[in-house]
Design a protein around this nucleic acid. Structure first.
Lengths: 147, 147
DNA sequence: AGCACGAACGTGTATATGCACTCAAAATCT
DNA sequence: AGATTTTGAGTGCATATACACGTTCGTGCT
């Protein structure tokens, strides 16, 4: 399987393209979520914390495929606004995180706004392209997981 | 064309997936570029500035599909390390940017490292998936461009 | 019990990202 | 020419991202 020579135009850079797509998509979701005051990352984080009950940073790091130290900081806004609570578990190294009542209420409120964003994106792309994109992303992440 | 009801699992979130992919891919390229001291964004930026000769922030913003104010800040490391120079054009509002000699040399040095990263990613994904991913991303960006 | 190792987490530092706001200069209108 | 609008760019603020390093605590070994 010989590969064609890599052309060096930056648009051929997989990293450049994926990052650009992330920027674009982020903007769209942000616009929809703006009324809640939640950023898209906070929405995801709050969703996982709500769903997973008391959960540690380390586990969240696995679930979200995000660096542990990034999560520590991303949690700050949620802690400050009282949407998430932090407690120490039996293992005193571990910090358990749980959504507060306000947190769960906020997530419920944000959910339809997220759905609207998702719908807008999927409608714009169409069913086929949506499926293609998600499929390609999922398979790519599998292949790149061990690098 | 009725869409199936959106399941609300966060993994069904296009934004979540694209952002996750961007994080993963970024890590891989970063590892390769580390010896140069360049971040992947700086590499892209330096590449465009080198290729486009004297170029304004606004034009770079279009080329890179990145917010103008983000570029202003992303340029700082490159200016500080003397890889890029800033000058004022005839239109005194416009700031022209150009790669210095050191900048062009640095880009040349980084290019094979970028190519190695790109090659590693493409090899891991295989030709078909690479093509699928790029195609899906390109078409998606077209569809989402006007939202 | 005491020690060595690994696990879980936070901090320092640096970059990336973009919205709202402001400033200065060019272009256009009257 | 003078006033208004438009354009190009920087700053303040807040968040997102992750590597290197340090700290604390559990675990297992002797």
């Amino acid at each position: 399987m010989s590969n064609p020579p890599l052309r060096l135009s930056p648009t051929e850079c997989t990293c450049f393209r994926v990052r650009g797509a992330a920027r674009r998509v982020t903007q769209i979701y942000s616009r929809h979520l703006a009324p809640t005051g939640l950023k898209i990352s906070q929405f995801s984080l709050l969703g996982f914390v709500s769903a997973e009950g008391p959960v540690s940073i380390g586990r969240l790091s696995d679930l979200l495929a995000t660096d542990r130290t990034t999560l520590t900081r991303n949690l700050n806004p949620l802690l400050k606004s009282g949407l998430v609570e932090r407690s120490v578990s039996d293992d005193k190294r571990r910090h358990e995180l749980a959504a507060t009542l306000a947190g769960r209420a906020m997530f419920k409120r944000a959910l339809p706004l997220w759905a609207a964003a998702e719908q807008e994106v999927r409608t714009a792309m169409g069913a086929k392209l949506t499926s293609d994109l998600h499929g390609a992303l999922e398979r790519s992440m599998e292949k790149l997981a061990t690098l």
